[in-house]
Amino acid sequence: MKPRSCFLVLPALLTLACEGEEVTAGLGEPIRVEDNLRNQPAQFRPEPLPGLPPLTAQEINDGVLPISPNITASDTTGRSIHPGQTGKKISGRASQDALSVGIALEGLGSGYWLFPVGASDAQYDGEFFWDSLISFADDIPPGNHRLLFAAIDPSGASGNQLGLSLCLLPKVPDNANACDPKAAPPSVVVSLDWDRNLDLDLQVRAPNGKLIDAKTPSSAIGVDGAKPDPKAPGVGVLENDSNSQCLRDGPRRENAVWQTKPFPGTYALYVNLFDACGEPSVRFNVAIYQSVPGDAPDTFRQVESFRQSGTVIAPQANGGSKTGLFVTEFNIN
Protein backbone atom coordinates (compact mmCIF):
# COMPACT_ATOMS: atom_id res chain seq x y z
CA MET A 1 0.00 0.00 0.00
CA LYS A 2 1.35 3.39 -0.94
CA PRO A 3 1.80 5.98 1.80
CA ARG A 4 -0.81 8.20 0.15
CA SER A 5 -3.36 5.37 0.42
CA CYS A 6 -2.60 5.04 4.14
CA PHE A 7 -3.33 8.72 4.62
CA LEU A 8 -6.70 8.19 2.94
CA VAL A 9 -7.65 5.04 4.82
CA LEU A 10 -6.95 6.45 8.27
CA PRO A 11 -9.29 9.47 8.04
CA ALA A 12 -11.96 7.24 6.50
CA LEU A 13 -11.76 4.86 9.47
CA LEU A 14 -11.80 7.75 11.92
CA THR A 15 -14.85 9.21 10.21
CA LEU A 16 -16.67 5.90 10.37
CA ALA A 17 -15.72 5.53 14.02
CA CYS A 18 -17.40 8.82 14.89
CA GLU A 19 -20.58 8.16 12.92
CA GLY A 20 -23.78 6.64 14.25
CA GLU A 21 -26.63 7.52 16.52
CA GLU A 22 -26.07 7.56 20.26
CA VAL A 23 -27.88 4.78 22.07
CA THR A 24 -28.60 5.33 25.74
CA ALA A 25 -30.88 4.01 28.42
CA GLY A 26 -31.52 7.67 29.25
CA LEU A 27 -31.46 7.08 32.99
CA GLY A 28 -30.08 10.57 33.50
CA GLU A 29 -32.98 12.16 31.64
CA PRO A 30 -36.14 13.48 33.34
CA ILE A 31 -38.35 11.22 31.25
CA ARG A 32 -37.87 7.91 29.47
CA VAL A 33 -40.20 6.79 26.71
CA GLU A 34 -41.18 3.37 25.41
CA ASP A 35 -42.93 2.72 22.10
CA ASN A 36 -45.93 0.82 23.45
CA LEU A 37 -47.02 -0.44 20.02
CA ARG A 38 -43.72 -2.20 19.39
CA ASN A 39 -42.83 -2.79 23.01
CA GLN A 40 -39.41 -1.22 22.42
CA PRO A 41 -37.54 1.67 23.99
CA ALA A 42 -37.76 4.88 21.99
CA GLN A 43 -34.59 6.39 20.53
CA PHE A 44 -33.10 9.24 22.55
CA ARG A 45 -31.71 12.13 20.56
CA PRO A 46 -29.49 14.62 22.40
CA GLU A 47 -30.86 17.73 20.70
CA PRO A 48 -33.87 20.02 21.05
CA LEU A 49 -37.27 18.69 20.06
CA PRO A 50 -37.87 19.67 16.43
CA GLY A 51 -40.79 21.80 15.34
CA LEU A 52 -42.47 25.05 16.16
CA PRO A 53 -43.84 25.92 19.60
CA PRO A 54 -47.38 24.78 20.36
CA LEU A 55 -50.18 27.12 19.39
CA THR A 56 -51.23 29.42 22.19
CA ALA A 57 -54.77 29.49 23.54
CA GLN A 58 -55.22 32.84 21.82
CA GLU A 59 -54.06 31.44 18.46
CA ILE A 60 -56.39 28.47 18.81
CA ASN A 61 -59.29 30.77 19.68
CA ASP A 62 -58.43 32.88 16.66
CA GLY A 63 -58.76 29.80 14.45
CA VAL A 64 -55.08 29.41 13.62
CA LEU A 65 -54.43 25.89 12.35
CA PRO A 66 -51.26 24.06 13.32
CA ILE A 67 -48.58 23.55 10.70
CA SER A 68 -48.24 19.95 9.56
CA PRO A 69 -46.82 17.43 10.35
CA ASN A 70 -48.20 17.68 13.83
CA ILE A 71 -49.70 15.71 16.66
CA THR A 72 -53.45 16.03 16.28
CA ALA A 73 -54.50 14.46 19.58
CA SER A 74 -53.09 13.14 22.83
CA ASP A 75 -54.93 11.07 25.37
CA THR A 76 -54.09 10.07 28.93
CA THR A 77 -55.67 9.40 32.32
CA GLY A 78 -55.04 11.97 35.04
CA ARG A 79 -52.53 14.78 34.99
CA SER A 80 -50.86 14.18 38.34
CA ILE A 81 -47.52 12.40 38.28
CA HIS A 82 -45.99 10.80 41.34
CA PRO A 83 -42.24 11.06 41.84
CA GLY A 84 -40.63 8.25 39.90
CA GLN A 85 -43.90 7.17 38.28
CA THR A 86 -43.31 4.63 35.53
CA GLY A 87 -45.23 3.54 32.49
CA LYS A 88 -47.73 6.39 32.23
CA LYS A 89 -49.68 5.63 29.10
CA ILE A 90 -50.06 8.53 26.70
CA SER A 91 -51.38 7.82 23.23
CA GLY A 92 -52.69 9.92 20.40
CA ARG A 93 -52.75 10.57 16.69
CA ALA A 94 -50.41 12.26 14.24
CA SER A 95 -51.20 13.90 10.91
CA GLN A 96 -51.26 11.84 7.71
CA ASP A 97 -47.78 13.00 6.70
CA ALA A 98 -46.09 11.99 9.97
CA LEU A 99 -43.53 9.24 10.16
CA SER A 100 -42.43 9.52 13.78
CA VAL A 101 -43.30 11.10 17.10
CA GLY A 102 -40.92 13.05 19.32
CA ILE A 103 -41.55 13.64 23.04
CA ALA A 104 -39.73 15.92 25.49
CA LEU A 105 -40.37 17.51 28.87
CA GLU A 106 -40.32 21.24 28.27
CA GLY A 107 -37.26 23.02 29.64
CA LEU A 108 -35.72 19.92 31.20
CA GLY A 109 -33.38 17.21 29.97
CA SER A 110 -30.84 17.20 27.19
CA GLY A 111 -32.93 15.97 24.27
CA TYR A 112 -36.06 14.17 23.17
CA TRP A 113 -37.35 10.66 22.55
CA LEU A 114 -38.32 9.42 19.12
CA PHE A 115 -40.35 6.45 17.85
CA PRO A 116 -42.32 5.63 14.67
CA VAL A 117 -46.05 6.06 14.35
CA GLY A 118 -48.34 3.03 14.15
CA ALA A 119 -51.10 2.22 11.70
CA SER A 120 -53.43 4.81 10.22
CA ASP A 121 -56.93 5.19 11.57
CA ALA A 122 -59.63 5.42 8.89
CA GLN A 123 -62.00 6.90 11.48
CA TYR A 124 -59.75 9.99 11.64
CA ASP A 125 -58.99 10.56 7.95
CA GLY A 126 -56.00 8.29 7.94
CA GLU A 127 -54.19 9.93 10.83
CA PHE A 128 -51.58 7.70 12.40
CA PHE A 129 -52.05 6.21 15.84
CA TRP A 130 -49.21 6.21 18.37
CA ASP A 131 -48.93 4.90 21.88
CA SER A 132 -46.24 5.51 24.46
CA LEU A 133 -45.36 4.63 28.03
CA ILE A 134 -43.52 7.39 29.84
CA SER A 135 -41.47 7.05 33.01
CA PHE A 136 -40.61 10.09 35.10
CA ALA A 137 -37.43 10.56 37.14
CA ASP A 138 -38.03 11.10 40.84
CA ASP A 139 -35.88 14.23 40.97
CA ILE A 140 -37.92 16.42 38.64
CA PRO A 141 -38.74 19.68 40.43
CA PRO A 142 -42.35 19.40 41.60
CA GLY A 143 -44.91 21.69 40.04
CA ASN A 144 -46.58 22.28 36.71
CA HIS A 145 -44.71 20.98 33.67
CA ARG A 146 -45.55 20.48 30.06
CA LEU A 147 -44.87 17.49 27.86
CA LEU A 148 -44.23 18.50 24.27
CA PHE A 149 -45.07 16.27 21.33
CA ALA A 150 -43.82 16.74 17.78
CA ALA A 151 -44.61 14.86 14.59
CA ILE A 152 -41.78 14.34 12.10
CA ASP A 153 -42.28 13.56 8.41
CA PRO A 154 -40.04 11.40 6.15
CA SER A 155 -37.93 14.44 5.23
CA GLY A 156 -37.26 15.25 8.89
CA ALA A 157 -39.53 18.32 8.91
CA SER A 158 -41.84 19.05 11.79
CA GLY A 159 -44.75 21.43 12.30
CA ASN A 160 -46.29 22.78 15.47
CA GLN A 161 -45.69 20.89 18.66
CA LEU A 162 -48.50 19.90 20.99
CA GLY A 163 -48.32 20.59 24.72
CA LEU A 164 -49.80 18.49 27.51
CA SER A 165 -49.82 20.00 31.02
CA LEU A 166 -48.95 17.74 33.92
CA CYS A 167 -48.61 18.24 37.65
CA LEU A 168 -45.51 16.60 39.06
CA LEU A 169 -46.07 15.93 42.73
CA PRO A 170 -43.30 16.22 45.34
CA LYS A 171 -41.99 13.34 47.42
CA VAL A 172 -43.46 14.89 50.53
CA PRO A 173 -47.30 14.99 50.50
CA ASP A 174 -48.53 18.53 49.78
CA ASN A 175 -52.07 18.01 48.46
CA ALA A 176 -50.83 19.24 45.04
CA ASN A 177 -49.88 22.63 46.50
CA ALA A 178 -46.82 22.64 44.22
CA CYS A 179 -49.17 22.93 41.24
CA ASP A 180 -51.97 24.96 42.84
CA PRO A 181 -50.91 27.37 45.61
CA LYS A 182 -54.55 27.66 46.69
CA ALA A 183 -54.56 23.99 47.67
CA ALA A 184 -53.61 23.89 51.35
CA PRO A 185 -50.83 21.41 52.14
CA PRO A 186 -51.04 19.24 55.27
CA SER A 187 -50.50 21.18 58.48
CA VAL A 188 -47.43 19.11 59.40
CA VAL A 189 -45.53 16.35 57.66
CA VAL A 190 -42.68 14.38 59.20
CA SER A 191 -40.68 12.66 56.49
CA LEU A 192 -37.98 10.02 56.80
CA ASP A 193 -35.89 8.90 53.82
CA TRP A 194 -32.87 6.63 53.61
CA ASP A 195 -30.25 5.38 51.18
CA ARG A 196 -30.22 1.59 51.24
CA ASN A 197 -32.73 -1.16 50.64
CA LEU A 198 -33.61 -2.11 54.18
CA ASP A 199 -36.66 -1.87 56.41
CA LEU A 200 -36.32 1.41 58.32
CA ASP A 201 -39.34 2.76 60.21
CA LEU A 202 -40.42 6.24 61.24
CA GLN A 203 -41.84 6.42 64.77
CA VAL A 204 -43.53 9.46 66.33
CA ARG A 205 -44.58 9.52 69.98
CA ALA A 206 -47.70 11.75 70.18
CA PRO A 207 -48.59 13.81 73.26
CA ASN A 208 -51.34 11.32 74.09
CA GLY A 209 -48.63 8.66 74.51
CA LYS A 210 -49.44 6.71 71.40
CA LEU A 211 -46.57 5.68 69.18
CA ILE A 212 -47.29 6.24 65.49
CA ASP A 213 -45.43 3.51 63.59
CA ALA A 214 -45.98 0.71 61.08
CA LYS A 215 -47.96 -1.37 63.58
CA THR A 216 -50.19 1.47 64.85
CA PRO A 217 -50.19 3.93 61.97
CA SER A 218 -52.20 6.77 63.51
CA SER A 219 -52.21 8.85 66.68
CA ALA A 220 -55.94 8.39 67.13
CA ILE A 221 -57.16 6.60 70.25
CA GLY A 222 -60.51 4.87 70.45
CA VAL A 223 -62.73 6.34 73.16
CA ASP A 224 -65.31 4.26 75.04
CA GLY A 225 -64.60 1.19 72.93
CA ALA A 226 -64.99 2.99 69.62
CA LYS A 227 -62.48 2.37 66.85
CA PRO A 228 -59.76 5.01 66.44
CA ASP A 229 -60.70 7.54 63.78
CA PRO A 230 -57.59 8.35 61.73
CA LYS A 231 -59.46 11.13 59.89
CA ALA A 232 -60.36 13.03 63.03
CA PRO A 233 -58.95 16.56 63.37
CA GLY A 234 -55.49 16.78 64.92
CA VAL A 235 -54.68 13.14 64.20
CA GLY A 236 -51.46 12.16 62.45
CA VAL A 237 -51.27 9.18 60.11
CA LEU A 238 -48.30 7.19 58.87
CA GLU A 239 -48.93 6.97 55.13
CA ASN A 240 -46.87 3.93 54.25
CA ASP A 241 -44.40 1.29 55.45
CA SER A 242 -41.62 1.39 52.91
CA ASN A 243 -39.53 -1.75 52.23
CA SER A 244 -41.71 -3.65 54.66
CA GLN A 245 -40.44 -7.21 55.26
CA CYS A 246 -37.43 -6.29 53.09
CA LEU A 247 -39.59 -6.17 49.97
CA ARG A 248 -38.16 -3.35 47.88
CA ASP A 249 -40.82 -0.85 46.92
CA GLY A 250 -38.72 2.00 45.59
CA PRO A 251 -39.34 5.19 47.57
CA ARG A 252 -37.32 4.35 50.72
CA ARG A 253 -39.40 7.06 52.39
CA GLU A 254 -42.07 7.16 55.09
CA ASN A 255 -44.28 10.16 55.85
CA ALA A 256 -46.38 10.89 58.92
CA VAL A 257 -49.03 13.40 57.92
CA TRP A 258 -51.27 15.72 59.94
CA GLN A 259 -53.80 17.15 57.54
CA THR A 260 -55.10 19.45 60.26
CA LYS A 261 -53.24 21.16 63.10
CA PRO A 262 -51.88 18.45 65.44
CA PHE A 263 -53.08 18.28 69.03
CA PRO A 264 -50.98 20.55 71.23
CA GLY A 265 -48.05 19.01 73.06
CA THR A 266 -44.62 17.56 72.48
CA TYR A 267 -43.97 15.07 69.66
CA ALA A 268 -40.85 12.88 69.82
CA LEU A 269 -39.33 11.48 66.60
CA TYR A 270 -37.49 8.16 66.38
CA VAL A 271 -35.93 6.15 63.58
CA ASN A 272 -36.08 2.40 64.05
CA LEU A 273 -34.23 -0.25 62.08
CA PHE A 274 -36.75 -3.09 61.84
CA ASP A 275 -34.62 -5.32 59.59
CA ALA A 276 -31.21 -4.60 58.03
CA CYS A 277 -32.06 -6.93 55.10
CA GLY A 278 -28.40 -7.87 54.74
CA GLU A 279 -27.13 -4.29 54.58
CA PRO A 280 -24.39 -3.21 57.01
CA SER A 281 -25.76 0.26 57.77
CA VAL A 282 -28.01 3.03 56.52
CA ARG A 283 -27.87 6.81 56.33
CA PHE A 284 -31.15 8.62 56.86
CA ASN A 285 -32.68 12.09 56.83
CA VAL A 286 -35.59 13.24 58.95
CA ALA A 287 -37.36 16.48 57.99
CA ILE A 288 -40.39 18.35 59.24
CA TYR A 289 -42.56 20.34 56.83
CA GLN A 290 -45.21 22.83 57.82
CA SER A 291 -47.92 24.72 56.00
CA VAL A 292 -47.56 28.51 56.02
CA PRO A 293 -49.52 31.27 54.27
CA GLY A 294 -48.34 32.14 50.77
CA ASP A 295 -47.40 35.55 49.44
CA ALA A 296 -50.72 36.00 47.65
CA PRO A 297 -54.09 35.96 49.40
CA ASP A 298 -55.66 32.52 49.92
CA THR A 299 -52.47 30.75 48.97
CA PHE A 300 -50.21 28.45 50.93
CA ARG A 301 -46.66 27.15 50.91
CA GLN A 302 -45.04 24.11 52.39
CA VAL A 303 -41.74 24.92 54.09
CA GLU A 304 -39.10 22.72 55.66
CA SER A 305 -38.66 23.73 59.29
CA PHE A 306 -36.25 21.03 60.46
CA ARG A 307 -33.77 18.54 58.98
CA GLN A 308 -31.34 16.11 60.56
CA SER A 309 -29.25 13.26 59.16
CA GLY A 310 -27.98 10.18 60.95
CA THR A 311 -26.74 6.61 60.63
CA VAL A 312 -28.00 3.32 61.96
CA ILE A 313 -25.96 0.11 61.83
CA ALA A 314 -27.19 -3.45 61.28
CA PRO A 315 -26.79 -4.67 64.92
CA GLN A 316 -29.38 -2.06 65.92
CA ALA A 317 -32.11 -3.93 64.02
CA ASN A 318 -34.75 -5.01 66.54
CA GLY A 319 -37.75 -6.29 64.58
CA GLY A 320 -39.91 -3.55 66.10
CA SER A 321 -39.45 -4.83 69.67
CA LYS A 322 -38.63 -1.38 71.01
CA THR A 323 -38.49 2.31 70.16
CA GLY A 324 -35.72 3.28 67.80
CA LEU A 325 -33.04 5.96 67.77
CA PHE A 326 -34.27 9.28 69.17
CA VAL A 327 -33.85 12.09 66.63
CA THR A 328 -35.65 15.18 67.93
CA GLU A 329 -38.88 16.48 69.35
CA PHE A 330 -41.12 19.35 68.37
CA ASN A 331 -43.86 21.25 70.15
CA ILE A 332 -47.29 22.23 68.95
CA ASN A 333 -48.89 25.03 70.90
Binding site: G20, E21, E22, V23, Q43, L99, S100, L114, I152, D153
Partner: peptide
Protein backbone atom coordinates in the same frame (compact mmCIF):
# COMPACT_ATOMS: atom_id res chain seq x y z
CA UNK B 1 -8.24 -4.16 17.89
CA UNK B 2 -10.90 -1.65 16.96
CA UNK B 3 -14.37 -2.98 16.09
CA UNK B 4 -16.29 -0.66 13.82
CA UNK B 5 -19.89 -1.85 14.10
CA UNK B 6 -22.39 -0.86 11.41
CA UNK B 7 -26.00 -1.80 12.06
CA UNK B 8 -29.57 -0.48 12.08
CA UNK B 9 -30.18 -0.65 15.80
CA UNK B 10 -30.81 3.08 16.35
CA UNK B 11 -33.03 5.66 14.64
CA UNK B 12 -32.08 8.84 12.86
CA UNK B 13 -33.80 12.19 13.26
CA UNK B 14 -36.71 11.01 11.09
CA UNK B 15 -37.23 7.85 13.09
CA UNK B 16 -35.82 5.67 10.33
CA UNK B 17 -33.51 2.79 11.40
CA UNK B 18 -29.90 3.99 11.47
CA UNK B 19 -26.49 2.95 12.68
CA UNK B 20 -25.99 2.95 16.44
CA UNK B 21 -22.83 4.20 18.10
CA UNK B 22 -21.50 0.95 19.48
CA UNK B 23 -17.90 0.65 18.35
Amino acid sequence: QYDLVRDKLARDDRGVPADAKNN
